[in-house]
Amino acid sequence: MNCDGLWSKKNLIGLGLGQFVSLLITSTGFSSSELSRRGINAPTSQSLLNYLLLAFFYGGFLVYRRKPLRMNWYYYLLLSFIDVEANYLVVKAYQYTSLTSVMLLDCWSIPSVIFLTWLFLKTKYRYRKFAGVAICVAGLVLVVFSDVHASDRGGGSNPLKGDMLVIAGSMLYAISNVSEEFLVKKGDRIELMAMLGLFGAVVSACQIGIFEGNELRSIHWTAGAVIPFVGFALAMFLFYSTVPIILKISGSTMLNLSLLTSDMWAVLIRIFAYHEKVDWMYFIAFGAVAVGLVVYSGGDKIEDENTNQLEEVDKARDEEAAVDSFVAGSAAGNTSLSTEDELHLPLNLVVKER
């Protein structure tokens, strides 16, 4: 295996940024856990501050440039609605089903993203890509078995309802990721973030007014509540700011595969920060996901070079076939070329004949 394509600058940046956003997701999970431990259950309100940061930060650049939108505004409104509801459904699922079931969210998002990118973005996946996905999913399955083995699985108050929320949330995440990939490649990253922040804040504010008004009024805003609230928003702001870069470099499938390692980083934090014991399967799973990411990201350059070489070979064969046809025609006494014949010959042969 040629490692030049594997360790190319593009792939290394994609892998590095993927793990950066994975750590950000891990930090948001711990922030949410801390808020939940304090009895604060307002998932949409947590997201609102993130959308406001996106709107003010990137909106300032958008206003300064004074350029018309590259994409129609209603695309961003629809994307924002999907994104807000995806976040809401996934957080809500924790109230009804087990941690193990929610972890399957990542696994379900990957085939959804692959199908959507193949269907709408016409993305072509080679066998190497599917192998990388399979290895990553195998690592996630090991995590699930580890939870079962360690008796960490709780039934939840309504597992069926929770599982349906997880499936719905994963599909919305897949649609959101693929839509962002399309918009960032066809449009502009600054515009995407500004409009996502603006419409996301509007949708979140409406939803908070309907579902979370009483919850917010009952919160006792101490430092212990404000710090994880703000920390969650800052981590999400960095996450949303980095995601379009990954989508442009590596695509939405690579993004979702990278996010699989967030569970593994959470395990490491549990070990070193909270001194908790974890099952040995976690370490094997972490290695499997890491290998899967490398396999998925590697080989792009090699495959592109092979494709170019095949195209050159096909072109050379076409020229040889044209020469053979010309020679055969000359042997039969057809030494003059018609205009139609010239169109099928390489230019250098036509000039030489004349």
Rank of each mutant, 00 (worst) to 15 (best):
W118P: 12
L52N: 09
M281N: 10
L293S: 09
K315T: 12
R354W: 08
I25T: 13
K186E: 15
V178Q: 08
G60H: 01
L89N: 07
L160G: 01
D4T: 12
Y125I: 07
S47Y: 10
G209H: 06
S336D: 15
G132L: 07
I271T: 11
S146P: 05
S252D: 14
E342W: 03
N308Q: 15
V148D: 02
T26V: 06
S176D: 14
R128P: 05
R270L: 09
L196T: 09
G156T: 14
V267A: 08
L247Y: 02
A331E: 15
D147F: 01
E303K: 05
T307P: 00
L54A: 03
A134K: 03
M171Y: 15
E312A: 06
I82L: 08
S325Y: 12
S325W: 13
S204I: 02
V313F: 04
L142Y: 09
N348R: 15
K277I: 08
G169C: 02
W108I: 10
K352P: 06
L347E: 15
R126I: 12
F81D: 10
W73R: 11
I25R: 03
K10A: 11
L17G: 09
V137E: 13
S151C: 04
V141A: 09
Y296A: 03
V63P: 04
S98V: 08
V289T: 05
F199D: 07
N158L: 02
E34W: 04
L54W: 02
L337D: 11
S218C: 09
M193V: 00
F199A: 01
P346G: 08
V143T: 02
D304L: 00
K92L: 11
T261R: 08
V289K: 04
L49K: 14
L347M: 10
L54Y: 04
S157L: 12
N158V: 02
I208L: 05
G16A: 07
I246H: 10
L17I: 07
V102F: 01
W280E: 14
V226R: 03
T28M: 13
G5Y: 05
L260C: 09
V84H: 07
D341A: 13
I114H: 00
K129G: 13
G139L: 14
I302G: 04
V327P: 03
K315F: 11
A194Y: 00
W118L: 04
D300Y: 12
F20L: 07
N214A: 14
V113D: 14
S336P: 04
T26M: 15
G139K: 13
